[in-house]
């Protein structure tokens, strides 16, 4: 249950506030894998991904108060921080990733593999909805979210007008939102 998970996470954070390394180790055991793999997916560089993952845990060690239950799940918050740190690193160091759209077929394949279990039901639903999106819209969404590329940057890479990219991004999110609601309604 989320209550238990959040309560456990909160207890760990409180212990980390007191300087308890064992609590940090426990947190690492819980969330290092998804945080590391997310950073690795964004950066496509294991060394940089390890640095980002450690930076996320160091942030929690040094400033555990930055997360609170009001901000959502700790796991989601950590992954969100990791994503931003990774994209920031991409931009700062101009790390060259394979941002050709073909590379995102790989993620489409990954959409069917094991993912973070804590949000398994949400993940499964979104995975199925992502597969329903037209490839061109899914690519733009993934390039935006996991590479941090602006519409203009994607337009330049794909040799497509910026307006078209913006339109595809908007359509992708609108469809996901609509389909999500439909799926929930069908369950009622």
């Amino acid at each position: 249950m989320v209550h238990d998970q959040t309560t456990d996470d909160l207890a760990l954070i409180q212990q980390i506030t007191q300087g308890n390394q064992q609590a940090l180790t426990e947190l690492y055991a819980r969330y290092a894998r998804p945080v590391f793999n997310l950073a690795l997916y964004v950066l496509q560089n294991r060394v940089l991904a390890e640095e980002i993952m450690q930076d996320v845990f160091l942030l929690i060690w040094q400033s555990p108060h930055k997360w609170s239950p009001e901000k959502g799940r700790l796991s989601s918050w950590m992954m969100s921080v990791a994503r931003h740190m990774a994209i920031d690193r991409l931009r700062h160091e101009k790390v060259r990733t394979s941002d050709h759209t073909e590379s995102f077929d790989e993620l489409a394949e990954h959409l069917g593999v094991k993912t973070v279990s804590v949000l398994a039901e949400d993940t499964a639903l979104l995975r199925s909805l992502m597969q329903r999106l037209p490839k061109e819209q899914r690519d733009v969404l993934l390039l935006t979210y996991f590479r941090g590329l602006t519409a203009a940057e994607i337009a330049e890479r794909l040799q497509i007008p910026t307006g078209t990219i913006k339109s595809r991004l908007r359509l992708s999110l609108e469809k996901l939102r609509d389909w999500w609601h439909e799926a929930i309604n069908e369950r009622l």
Binding site: Y41, S80, T115, T123, L126
Partner: peptide, 11 residues
């Protein structure tokens, strides 16, 4: 949606 997208990255 973005939060949930994060969970799609492979492990």
């Amino acid at each position: 949606i973005g939060d949930t997208l994060l969970t799609l990255s492979p492990l």
